[in-house]
Write a protein that binds this DNA or RNA. Sequence first.
DNA 1: TCTGGCATAGACCGGTCGGTCCAATCCGCC
DNA 2: GGCGGATTGGACCGACCGGTCTATGCCAGA
Lengths: 202, 202
Amino acid sequence: MSAETTRDQDTRERILAAGAELFAQKGFHGCGLNEVLQRANVPKGSFYHYFGSKEEFGVALIERTRDGYLADLKPILGDRKLTPLTRLRRMFEVGRAECLDCGPERQCLISKLALETAQPSPLVHAAVRCAFQQWSALLAQVIREGQAIGEIDGRHDPDRLGNVLVMLWEGATMRMQIDRDIAPLDDFLAFVFDTLFGRPSA
Amino acid sequence: MSAETTRDQDTRERILAAGAELFAQKGFHGCGLNEVLQRANVPKGSFYHYFGSKEEFGVALIERTRDGYLADLKPILGDRKLTPLTRLRRMFEVGRAECLDCGPERQCLISKLALETAQPSPLVHAAVRCAFQQWSALLAQVIREGQAIGEIDGRHDPDRLGNVLVMLWEGATMRMQIDRDIAPLDDFLAFVFDTLFGRPSA
DNA sequence: TCTGGCATAGACCGGTCGGTCCAATCCGCC
DNA sequence: GGCGGATTGGACCGACCGGTCTATGCCAGA
């Protein structure tokens, strides 16, 4: 019975895990369902029992990924023992460490699916947009806290700065995949926390 | 004979133009050759006369796109009648105008193909990397000029700042496609030229 | 005018795609 | 025990994929 726990309800989870891994590497259209199912050791029939189509599967993947990210982020960004700016830095350092772990050829699943399916699939599109907006909003909140205690320059518009950080991070991870090197993430950290949030006064 | 000029050598160019348009929307794997050739009004045999494979075609597309970008950029970035910072701003404003023209659902072809094919295709990968490095280098040069005349804060590392601008721009265009709105590009311009290069002193 | 190679043209190939279908099996509930 | 929905298993489908092949049109140079 303990060995049988691999089946049952977690079949769905196994499909999702295999899809996340493969799509993050090969893309949505670059990887067929058969390959995903083979990796998950699940037959076709089970897939279409849990998901209505490949597109719905993509939406589920994005939501799963987003929820995982937010679950990781919130404890860091909400840690009252750290100053807001320290929390921001900690979050991006954790992100860098994760990229280092799983290798530079594995791009953020959300942005990858976003670019590949934004045009034809409104479902995927909505899921991606939601994920980015949530992240931007979280950052803006921490930025406001930093401004409240004078740690971050109050002339920044918090919402805009939150968007800028997200955009720059996504651009950096994209560049990381292109260069096969985490140097772009180091450029990101150095720019944001030494230059942008560092001493701007002469 | 004038009407026949549509054929002959420019067949290759017609294929490239159709591919650029369709791949920018639907992606490399999301669009079949048949669709490209139908749009270009060219039969299969001609395609494989000019290109060895779909992958080689992708490389040719990236190089064509990169050359087009650089040809547009260089006159602006090298315009000695403008200050370096003004040239930078002009360049991104032109980029924004072009995005406005062709619509927010059309993502930068280079970054799109980069994410989709970076892993399995070393040829495409090399072409993309080359394109980004050239652009970053151009920006770094202009930043150095700006620093030389005191227009840009000399404490910035020019190469890193060039990379940051490219990464942020790519992230912004990605977000533009996700949100179906050019507002992210406005955030980019406001942040870079009002906040980053604007008055940092209190 | 004949000829050789470049370019056009599209039928065709095996393979794989996303998706369908139904029989077999499992398992909680009566 | 046996009933019935949930789940598994995988053969199968038409469509389309990237790529091949050969027949033909075209035109420059002998």
